[in-house]
Amino acid sequence: MLTVNNIEVVYSDVILVLKGLSLSCEKGKITTLLGANGAGKSTTLKAISGLLKSEEGEVTEGTIQFMGEKINGRDPEKIVKMGIFQVMEGRRVFEDLNIVENLRCGAYTRSDRAGVKQDIELVFNYFPRLKERKDSLAGYLSGGEQQMLAIGRALMARPKLLLLDEPSLGLAPLLVREIFRIIQKINEEEKTTILLVEQNASLALQVATYGYIMEMGKVVLDGPCEKLRENQDVKEFYLGIGEGGTKRSFKNAKHYKRRKRWLS
């Protein structure tokens, strides 16, 4: 459905952030993109959604294809109309607008009023908590509710491909599980294809079917999530599991610390 082919992204004409990144999303599946801070995950999403332009970034090489059409270089509003919607990192709800108005903004590119009304109910179905507070300003919602609103707002556009940028950011573990459960539900019920960028690797690898791991602007490893979960390097660096399937033992850490002391 989405094919990113060997792209390079440059910010302000000089800073090379993505160096030949390729990935693809299969229709109706959840694909996840993992990596450390600064690996270029958010940049990848912005390259796809066209938001790079507003940050003086540019795709200089390679192509991004969505349902057979080349979309790099297009304006974000055209890309949203084609059915790609990005939920930006850090929730970014319109704080001065109330919940319903926020949802209506998500549906900006649509013109079927009745459908929009129906979808507001649909979003309230997924997130009953939003319905309880539908007239309050989004700025006064809790972090979890704001994240729900951000995802709900994205649903309003009826996207074919949903780009989620760290939905777990800054949320309590229990809330993170709830959000992920709903993301999975949306994927199953609405048949929305999802590209999920995450720091929380263990959860992301559980909900997704295919995963990419990127470092320094490149994909270094990819495969079906079951396989990635078994991969020794992934286990060690992303899941924090040592050899033999146990959690990394404290002994090793101590050993490392001791050695460092000896060095100094």
Binding site: S49, L51, S54, V80, F85, Q86, M88, E101, N102, A157
Partner: peptide, 23 residues
């Protein structure tokens, strides 16, 4: 109105408005 709400959204953040497909 849709345009009015979109204007207020743009006032809050241009970039987020852009990501909604608001021109």
């Amino acid at each position: 109105s849709k345009a009015g709400v979109a204007m207020r959204a743009t006032a809050f953040s241009n970039q987020v408005a852009l990501s909604m497909g608001i021109p």
